[in-house]
Each structure stands twice: as structure tokens, then as C-alpha cells.
Write a protein that binds this DNA or RNA. Structure first.
Lengths: 241, 241
DNA sequence: CGGTTTGATTTTTTCGAAAATCAGCCATAC
DNA sequence: GTATGGCTGATTTTCGAAAAAATCAAACCG
């Protein structure tokens, strides 16, 4: 399911593969990205690599140090907390708009994508969250919830934030044998969305995001370089909300 | 003030110059970006151009059509309205956080950047808004208001949205001889921010953004290809707010 | 001994030619 | 008359070598 250089330009293909590798931590946070190695890994030339890297820089998954090459964007508790804060803001807004504007087709897509995710979950058994396939369906489900939002710009921002958060989720999933009652939460969120209960849906999605963050910090926080800049704490943000 | 390839990589320099040219509409919305022409214009090679273009794609100022080259991101009333909607959401949030977290240095920076902008304004006379220099100071002033926001991610999103909006403002400024009472508005916003009146500051910044958008549509709307996709109207968003 | 300069090596960045792809056009067939 | 198939020229995309810059370490002073 991962190979489709069909009609796609080579650079775009490398972009997709590298993004996936960064999100799934095959390329570890903070790792130096040397061209020689990447060239072997993805079988493309310097320039093509550089193009993919450049786009990832603008997406925030890679940082470029002037004349010193590229590095996988580092992770930190401060960044995760900030990301969570922004995500709550954006996701709530998207959800509110989607519930307002969504039609029957939108509802059908939600139910469909939930079903696909749920089925794969039972098929894969207790380790479903380690599967890249499930990760994709999980992303699709969350997207379907807000798809009818009507604001292309907000949706695009949301998508990029979601992907960056996915990297943090992924980091903790290797430590966490069972992924809480996430499946139950998803069902509750879906139900409240379909019932057009905006306040409840927003409350649930916020809790969903916040609790996931707490779990990541609890189980994988020790992996982050705590020696990072921490200009503010989470409680600041919560209070501001 | 525009030339500083000091310590900067060549590609980054081209990136800055192209971004400025797109924002100031030297490169017109929807224009096809042919490599041959760009190579002469910026005096760099294909690969370097491609790198800059790629970053601009991820920033939303350029769109890449698979295997058919690059195009300056088109403008449309739908996009402007959507942009305005997201900007109001983000800018209000940033401002609220900044007022909450800001310290004395932050206030001083606001006053300083307002003063710089104001001085240049009187020095340039009635056509100040056409100057790129003023455009920069105007951007600096607005940034200074939210600089203490404390959320790097939100600030980065804000910055990109601001730049895209600047392109729209620029399109209308050539038609509009006098730029309303914008300078008075800036003063009022600054005063309410320094007075830490969150609600008032947010209200003022929202009006500031919304009225600018209305003016752009009124005076330059006829330039946009109205034949664009328009999945929703502005009133949708306003109502949702 | 601490600190700076120099030179060799590694790594990044830039370049323009070569390959791949697209767009328009005409000939041909049905 | 319309559609299909291949040409040709223009444009994009990819490539790896060459240039520029950084890194590391040994040699060199104060």
C-alpha cells in the first residue's frame, strides 16, 4: 500500500516516503540527514533529495541549518504541549464548522471510515496501533469528522498539525501495550458529531487530544531531550483557554 | 535594504526574493513560472530555483502541477474570505495570549515599532502604503503585538497567513488613493493592547482585518477570476463565528 | 600548556547538460 | 467529419560532477 509512483513525479514520491519515515520515526528526531546516506536509502540524486527536504522544512518536519545541512525536526515536551494547544484550538473550530455545514454524504463518510478502522482493529488484535495501515485509517477517520468544515485553509493547517502529532503518538505506542479505551472514545465522538451536538463533540475531541498527549508524556517523555527550551508550561495554555 | 546574501545560502536568498515578488505581485497570481525566465530573473540554476519553488509550494504561495511546472497561487474571493476567517480566529487567539503573557519589554517593542511605522508614514506622505519599506514596518508592528504570545506554532501559522493576506492588500492598494483611517486604527489597537483590555483589543483587530478584506473586495475584487470554486460564502463563516 | 592557524577531509550546495515528459500539429483511418 | 496515432519542438525533471563551505586534527605560536 505504500508504493505508488504512478503519474507522480519522483521528487513527490520521495517526499511522501520521507514524510512517512519521519512520522513513523524510522528517521529519528534530531537525526542528521546526510545526503550520502539518503541517496542510498531512497535511490535518488542530490537535487531531488534537496527538493523533498525543502518541502519538509516548510512543513516543519525537518529543519535546515544554513550551510550545515538538514536535521529531522527535534521533539520536546514544550513543542508537544504547544502543538496540543494549537491542535485543540483548530480541531474544535473545524469540528464546529463541519457539524454546521455537513450533509448526508459527510455523515456516511464518517460512518464508513469508522467502520474500516474498527474492522482492521479487531482483525489485527491487540497490537493494532503498531500497524502503519491502522495509522492511516485512524487519520482518515479523524479527517472525515472535519471534512465538511468548508474552510480549505483551516483544514490544511489541521492536517499538518495532525501529522506532526502523529509522530509523538508513534513514539509512545512502542511502550504502551494497550492503547487505552481509544476505540470507545472514537465511537463516542462519532455519535456526538452525527447527533450534531456541537458542544459535546468539541469537548470530547479536546479530551481525546489532551489525554493522548498526557499519555505520550507519561510513557515516552523520558525519550525527549528535556534540555530543550521551555518558554511556557502546559498549565499556562490551559488557563488561557 | 533588499540585498543580504550574507551568510545565507543562495537558495534561501532566492526564496526570500521570490516570496517578496509574489507577495508584491511582481509575479502575478496565476502566472506560469517558466524556468527559463526565472533563471534570467534571479540568476541561479534550475535546481536552486526548484528548491525555492518547492518551499513556496509548502507555504501556499505557489502551486505545483505534477510534471507541468509551477504556477503562482491564484487569488479568488473565496480564498480571501476563507483566509480572513482563519486569520481572525488565529489573530484573536495570539493577541489574547500575548496580552496575558507579555512583559515590559514586549510593550516597549510595540511602542517602538509603532513609532517607526508612524514616522515613515508621515515622511512618505500620502502614498506611504505603496512603499515596500512601509509594508515591512507594518508587518513588524502587527507582529510585535502578538510576539509575546508564547506559542511558537501559532505564531508561525499566523505569520504565513499574514503574508498571504498581504498579497491581497497589495492588489487593492494600487487602486485606493488613501488608505482609510488605518493609522488611527493602529493606534487604537496598540492602546487597548497596552491597557491589557483583551476583549477590546480582539474586537478591534477583528474589525481591522474584516474591514481591510471588505475594502480589497470592493476595490480589487474585479481583478480576481470569479470563475473560481466557491464552496462557501463569507456570511457562512461570519455566522459560524 | 592553552589557544589559534593551517591544511586535508568530509559534507553541503550549485551548476548545466542529458533524459523524460508534455503540448500542439498534421497525417491517416474509419 | 471526427477520432486516433505518432511526429516535433518546447518545457520540465533528474542526474552526478564540480565548486564552496564546514569540520576535524595536527602543527604552530605566545
Amino acid at each position: 500500500m505504500r508504493d505508488k509512483p504512478a503519474g507522480e513525479t519522483r521528487a513527490a514520491d520521495v517526499l511522501h516516503r520521507m514524510r512517512a519515515d519521519i512520522i513513523s520515526c524510522v528517521l529519528k528526531p534530531g537525526a542528521k540527514l546526510r545526503f550520502e546516506g539518503l541517496r542510498d536509502m531512497y535511490a535518488v540524486s542530490f537535487s531531488t533529495l534537496r527538493e523533498a527536504l525543502s518541502r519538509l522544512v516548510a512543513e516543519g518536519l525537518v529543519v535546515a541549518e544554513d550551510q550545515r545541512g538538514f536535521v529531522v525536526a527535534p521533539v520536546s515536551i514544550a513543542d508537544l504541549n504547544d502543538l496540543t494547544y494549537v491542535r485543540v484550538l483548530v480541531e474544535r473550530e473545524c469540528l464546529g464548522l463541519a457539524i454546521k455545514h455537513g450533509n448526508d454524504g459527510w455523515e456516511a463518510d464518517i460512518i464508513g471510515s469508522f467502520h474500516r478502522m474498527d474492522r482492521l482493529q479487531t482483525r489485527l488484535g491487540s497490537n493494532y496501533y503498531l500497524s502503519g495501515e491502522w495509522g492511516k485509517l485512524h487519520g482518515d477517520f479523524h479527517f472525515s469528522l472535519v471534512a465538511a468544515c468548508g474552510s480549505p485553509n483551516l483544514l490544511e493547517i489541521r492536517q499538518k498539525l495532525f501529522e506532526r502529532a502523529h509522530r509523538y503518538r508513534r513514539m509512545s505506542s512502542q511502550f504502551r501495550p494497550k492503547w487505552r479505551a481509544k476505540d470507545v472514545e472514537h465511537k463516542m465522538i462519532m455519535d456526538s458529531v452525527i447527533a450534531r451536538d456541537t458542544a459535546k463533540a468539541q469537548e470530547l475531541i479536546e479530551r481525546h487530544i489532551r489525554e493522548t498527549t498526557e499519555n505520550v508524556i507519561k510513557h515516552a517523555g523520558h525519550l525527549f531531550d528535556a534540555a530543550d527550551e521551555a518558554p511556557h508550561t502546559r498549565s499556562d495554555h490551559v488557563a488561557a483557554e
